[in-house]
Design a binder for these strands. Structure first.
Lengths: 175, 175
DNA sequence: TCGTCTGATTGCATTTTGCAACTGGTTGCA
DNA sequence: TGCAACCAGTTGCAAAATGCAATCAGACGA
């Protein structure tokens, strides 16, 4: 690899096209989604806890590309010499409204399951105000931005995680 | 081709994943974008007026897939026995907010050109109210929904097209 | 009748993806 | 001190998707 952030010949300067060039494949969105909503920060957790079953070489490649694109960053985990922590950058965090919109569209038009769409529903119902609160939590957790330290109490992240668990528990009980 | 709308084994029931399964490639978004904002409704115009240069076999394949997914529809053009008109469905029209969000993100973080991002800018500034107006215009033009017939006056579609032309003219003049 | 336009298809080379096995190293525990 | 478990990946190979150029058959207009 010659350059960390290579200058690529773009197909056009259209914002939709440029976004597709960065995120337009079967896995990039999935990786960012898991980091954003599943709080997965290590290679192994992204690999094994992936709902869709990503292959390790693909994950490796996507983490490299997303890092090169400036959407995520990588740093050493002090707890383990071989561990690396992946974090969302501000650029990555600001993909949240895109995820919210895609989630809302998918929920309306595609055959989603209840437990995997409850978070999209809450995000849709919460609107831009909730998104902003969640983005601030992500800024605290991923960027270490102390200005964004959340007030004690229920965070949006926890709220989403608990809603998911509640649906899973309820559906498991019904059987 | 066995079935018009084939039942596919999905990777998961997550709304993000399902959307990626349908639109997660290098061209699907581009084709829908051109139909939505470029008012291209025929194979030939989509092929030759594409900013990015799509190949005819890829375009053919994507039109087929998007039709199978229910995002666009195809019907005969009465003016020419070989012509086909592609239209957005309601499901496709409702992708507009997704495009608006992606456009806003791309405009902020990627090396866009002015003429190709002016429409994204207007869409961002106009907000959900403008999106709804534009979606109604699309419902009239693509679905023939008379309830959505726009009042005489400047339509959002025209507004976007003219803003684009104005930037191109200004930049051409500067040289 | 001839040239152009229509929505595509075909053949072929290149690139990307998917899968399974494997690597070199670290860590915690007995 | 040895050993199993864990860490972030890499490697090799088959299969699928993509990209490009040439081509196609029917329809249209002059």
């Amino acid at each position: 690899m010659v350059a960390e952030r290579e200058e690529i010949a773009h197909r056009s300067g259209c914002p939709i096209n440029l976004t597709v060039e960065v995120l337009g494949d079967k896995w990039s969105f999935i990786v960012v989604r898991d980091m954003m909503f599943g709080n997965r920060r290590h290679f192994r957790t992204l690999l094994t806890q992936s709902e869709e079953g990503i292959a390790s070489n693909i994950l490796s490649d996507r983490l490299r590309r997303l890092t090169a694109a400036g959407i995520i960053s990588k740093k050493d985990d002090p707890s383990h010499k071989q561990k690396a922590i992946y974090s969302l950058t501000e650029q990555g965090i600001e993909l949240l409204p895109v995820f919210a919109m895609i989630g809302a569209w998918g929920r309306k038009w595609l055959p989603v399951t209840e437990e995997l769409s409850i978070r999209a529903q809450l995000l849709e119902e919460g609107g831009p105000q909730l998104w902003e609160k969640f983005m601030n939590e992500l800024r605290y957790e991923h960027l270490g931005d102390e200005n964004c330290r959340p007030e004690p109490g229920t965070s949006v992240g926890k709220q989403l995680a608990e809603a998911y668990k509640a649906v899973v528990a309820r559906k498991g009980a019904k059987k």
